[in-house]
């Protein structure tokens, strides 16, 4: 990864996970792992976010919330599924209330496995997501240029 055009802001949402990955996502922002060195700020507001870090297997109740959050984020945006239950449903796959994986609801760009996903893995996933975000931004600019 070379340099970034802007500081990407991240939004974190718990779509019916066990909290294990959520506290690891938060741990990424604290001094030991310090995701902020990539210019990333943890925001609570979807309208300001570029990266959506999402955990959990999505249940019937929060499906609409996930969809809404995704739509509220401005383009271009990337989604990182954190933890095995966000990737496929994981241990909760057989639960009656679990849809199984974030990608059943919204498109996912990066999958971070692990139960719980380690901060190192999460950071790795985020950095990958940053590259995808850059690319999306370039494509997006070109599209706009063509429109004009």
């Amino acid at each position: 990864m070379k340099k970034l055009a802007k500081s990407p802001w991240m939004l974190h949402y718990d779509a019916s996970s066990c909290n294990g990955c959520d506290i690891e996502v938060l741990a990424c922002t604290t001094p030991k792992y310090d995701i902020e060195r990539f210019g990333i700020i943890n925001t609570g507001d979807p309208f300001q976010a570029d990266i959506l870090l999402i955990t959990g297997g999505v249940n019937a109740q929060c499906e609409s919330v996930v969809r809404q959050l995704y739509e509220q984020m401005p383009n271009p945006k990337v989604v990182v599924a954190v933890g095995i239950c966000a990737c496929t449903g994981g241990v909760f796959k057989d639960c009656y209330n679990i849809k199984g994986g974030i990608d059943t609801v919204i498109p996912v760009d990066v999958y971070v496995p692990g139960c719980a996903a380690r901060p190192q893995a999460i950071i790795d996933g985020v950095v990958k997501a940053l590259e995808i975000l850059e690319e999306k931004r370039r494509n997006y600019k070109e599209e706009k240029k063509e429109e004009r």
């Binding site: 066990c18 249940n59 109740q61 909760f92 057989d94 009656y96 679990i98 139960c115």
Partner: peptide, 27 residues
Amino acid sequence: FVHRGLEKLVETKDFKEYVYIAERVCG
């Protein structure tokens, strides 16, 4: 918003295996 239905899983998982599920009630 976080309901997964873990208690029900006990009917389909071996009771020794369920320890891992019980641990994932909350991280």
